[in-house]
Nucleic acid binder design. Structure first.
Lengths: 212, 212
DNA sequence: GAGGCGATACATAAATATATGTACTCCCTA
DNA sequence: TAGGGAGTACATATATTTATGTATCGCCTC
């Protein structure tokens, strides 16, 4: 046992694992104690090796990084979590923030950034690169803009419309009159300057109001 | 100059570049003569170093791997091209096949597979891993299934419908009567067991009949 | 506490979409 | 070459969707 930062790397791409490994090799104060190619493997390894930090890829087949992070937080809350992803999208980032991950690193980061992130997170600080911080701002900005554009009722109707439900069905689902659905939908159309539901679906998908 | 296979690596993720580099280092008959972090850089490097093979990542900001492959084929057709991607989707693979790339490798491949691919492609053979080959089959199978499910006219109407065009507009765009559009769309609904256009959009997106 | 504003609710008329039935053409094949 | 099937085309009736107008309630502000 030393006071090195003991790290487990998780990535389903062997090439990536090797890349990070070879990069961290020989760095003072850092020790890669294990690597895993899947979420399940990572859980097993972590419970056996009790590491200080897990660096985990987000996009993986089977148990993905998000699910892995959730379980690690639940079962081994002392292990710091540093997420690694090539795409920093709203869909990726949001659940991770809710889980309370310690840091997020883009795969396009260089060596120095990665080392800085590992050391910060292992020391109990958070690490989110400037690009990620900017994205988080954009997310909350976009969200508030969308939420201020539509009323709660309108958002309800948008979601149901985009699932293919018709006016009557929406009325039933929300427990309101058919004619009220008519009004709400007309208001939505007017706000967006469109005039049919298909265009609404396209808008909602583009703005990530719904997921496909 | 030797008779090593002289390789340029292209990937926008420094970590990935390092990983592959360290893996290829010291392998007999293989020599990494340069690495690039972008399409533009790769073109420049290739024209200067005249390599035997370029291993290129597909997902890159700016000029992506597909565009890079196209330009390389046009300007330096003697350089073998081996594509590298983490996701082997129909959208990724199809343009590459059309360009006439020499091989395709998943980023989840291991060392042995990668070496085999590099040697095959450098020797003038094609290399597509078993998983990719399976995907290609699935693509052509899915395509033929979709194409046999819908007539050309129906596909026209589906595409226009999914852009938000209404019956009259579709009729105008295709130069047919409104009533004919009615028939075609009704046929589509019957075939799919659905009964409104929104559900058609959702279907088309899921089956990749249209792109958003 | 009067007035304005936004959210929700309801009504009607007009436009559009959907269900169903029919007809014509072309091509294949028995 | 007669018949069947698939693709395309057109018509009618019904259902749904969209445009527009109006009413009520709660909230905030002046």
């Amino acid at each position: 046992m030393s006071d090195n930062i003991r790290i487990i790397l998780v990535d389903d791409h062997p090439l990536m694992l090797m890349g990070i490994c070879s990069m961290l090799e020989g760095k003072p104060g850092i020790e890669v104690v294990g690597t895993a190619g899947s979420g399940a493997e990572a859980m097993e390894l972590a419970s056996r090796l009790n590491p200080d930090l897990m660096v985990l890829d987000i996009v993986m087949p089977g148990m993905d990084g998000i699910e892995l992070a959730r379980r690690m937080r639940a079962e081994m809350p002392d292990v710091a979590l540093l997420a690694l992803s090539s795409d920093a999208s709203i869909a990726t980032l949001e659940p991770l923030l809710n889980i309370g991950i310690d840091g997020f690193l883009s795969k396009s980061s260089n060596e120095a950034t990665m080392l800085a992130a590992i050391r910060s997170v292992a020391d109990g600080y958070e690490y989110f690169g400037t690009d990620i911080a900017r994205l988080i701002e954009r997310i909350s900005f976009a969200k508030s803009a969308q939420e201020s554009l539509f009323t709660p009722r309108e958002l309800d109707v948008i979601r149901l419309s985009c699932k293919g439900l018709q006016y009557k069905e929406i009325a039933g689902a929300l427990g309101i009159k058919y004619l009220t659905v008519v009004t709400i939908k007309n208001n939505i159309f007017r706000k967006l300057g469109i005039n049919n539901t298909v265009e609404l679906v396209l808008y909602a998908v583009k703005k990530q109001l719904i997921t496909l």
